[in-house]
Design a binder for these strands. Structure first.
Lengths: 287, 287
DNA sequence: GTCGGCCATAAGCGATGCTTGGGGGGTGGA
DNA sequence: TCCACCCCCCAAGCATCGCTTATGGCCGAC
């Protein structure tokens, strides 16, 4: 149909063929095929070119409209491919939303200002559900050694986030091992973080007394700052917010949590998603 | 692109293939090709089917529009092919316009009421020009033996139109040959008709004295009815109008004129034109 | 764990669709 | 009037395209 359009504009089959870079019989055959399925002649072959029949004139109107839509579609797809538009949706856990995501989004906005990114803050289990259902494209999640990786989703490692000890102010020095804190009351976070604490404590031979439960790292530090408990928090959470009164100690046995970006297989080839993923990786290079 | 549309509606490549009556790999390959020229993924393959990417959703909008235009074009072309619309333009000489054309148009209107026919009344030379330039599709023309056929145009014979002698009332019987009228004053018509008269007279050994010139057969008969001249007129003109006072005589040596429909090669396959041509042939079957 | 659905890949082969070569037809100029 | 050019169609050859069958990976459900 686009061939027909070219010929109609050129005024002759030969001229149309030249415009298309083809030979004249090729174009002629296409037009014959088109006329066959149209059920009647579309153009009258005459001296010095062709004239459109009424059917041809009607078809030309639609052919122009189709060509316009094809052009528009091509332009839109080009825009998307070259990041002059498009969007990506991201789910991220709280401290990641506070540290990694703003940096990544700022970098992405600088290099691709027309890409729109939507953020949903939620804990990893929910984030995984959102990725599976297609509600978001990427999920910034964390996991500990004891957590097993999500199958059927692609995990892009963004590095390790070491877990730190968070102690009240003015205490008696820094403990050398977790076992020294066996009798302290604890603040624990979400289920997975609590699991990690319990696992580490178990390796040190005790079961922590979890007195407070909150996954809000500001609340955790507020409690610790008042001397009501001790806690562990990942480095990232402490980067996001650091209460001036708490003391932070490194303790190798606390290990670290993995920070990954999860996504469905294949979606990483969507330009806007790829750009966001790249920005996230750049904001936190794999350790 | 229409394949993509089907798949997007069906929700999976396999379902789309079933809807199209194809196999799954065929559809899959088409989509890969489409994604290749789109420059990015259009759909994300996942469990239980595919989800559209943003590019896919945008493309789908245009694909729907394109499909709508294709459907509309198909419907219009079907209408034209089956005579539920369309038009044809006809040029015809005066007496033909008065006799053959109305009959043909009435018959055509009865069997294809939605076909519009435009009539231009003019003499054959002008009609031929209109056909050549494409201003009309068909031309009802006449010609005598001495006129040569138009080259490069198709002539469909509609029969012969015998030439009659038109005599004033109350004359002395019917002449047995044209030579008996050698001394009469004549009314002659258009150039070709006058040429035919002169040729016939020449074969009878005289040159007619042409006193009046008009190609209007009503005027011719009015002059003859008043006894001002004698004339020849084709049978068709006398069918269109017959002055009550003139006498009409058959004279074999006057011969006849051919009545043809002329058209450009190929245009007879346009449905509306074919219908009009058929109606003309039916209204005046070839003699 | 196994089954069933979904998708991708690979190989085979018929069909599509391009090309070159030749001929008919019409027009304009020598 | 004839020739030359341009237009188009037709036929044959052949590469490519595109569909098919067959197979394997992946995932979710029973």
């Amino acid at each position: 149909m686009l061939i027909f359009r070219t010929v109609a504009r050129a005024g002759s089959i030969s001229a149309g063929a030249r415009a298309l870079g083809w030979t004249q019989p090729a174009v002629s055959q296409h037009l014959q095929a088109l006329e066959r399925e149209a059920g009647g002649p579309l153009l009258v072959r005459g001296a010095g070119g062709v004239d459109l029949t009424e059917a041809g004139r009607r078809l030309l109107v639609h052919a122009d409209a189709v060509a316009a839509h094809l052009d528009a579609a091509g332009a839109e797809l080009d825009d998307l491919a070259e990041l002059r538009g498009g969007s990506a949706r991201l789910a991220a856990f709280p401290s990641g939303s506070a540290v990694v995501v703003p940096a990544a989004l700022a970098a992405l906005a600088a290099e691709a200002p027309d890409v729109e990114v939507g953020l949903v803050e939620c804990e990893p289990p929910e984030a995984i559900g959102l990725v599976r259902s297609g509600s978001v494209d990427l999920a910034l999640v964390f996991g500990y050694e004891e957590d097993r990786a999500e199958e059927s989703l692609v995990a892009v490692p963004l590095g390790d986030d070491p877990v730190r000890l968070v102690l009240p102010p003015g205490g008696p020095g820094v403990p050398r091992s977790l076992a020294e804190l066996a009798d302290e009351p604890w603040v624990a976070g979400c289920e997975r973080c609590r699991g990690h604490l319990v696992a580490c404590a178990g390796r040190s031979g005790f079961a922590p007394r979890v007195r407070h439960v909150t996954d809000d790292y500001v609340v955790v530090q507020a409690l610790v700052a008042r001397g009501l408990a001790v806690a562990v928090l990942p480095e990232t959470a402490l980067t996001a917010f650091r209460h001036p009164d708490v003391r932070v100690a490194e303790l190798p046995e606390l290990g670290s949590r993995r920070i990954d970006v999860l996504h469905r297989r294949g979606i990483e080839r969507v330009p806007a998603v790829a750009a966001l993923l790249g920005a996230l990786r750049h904001a936190r290079p794999p350790a």
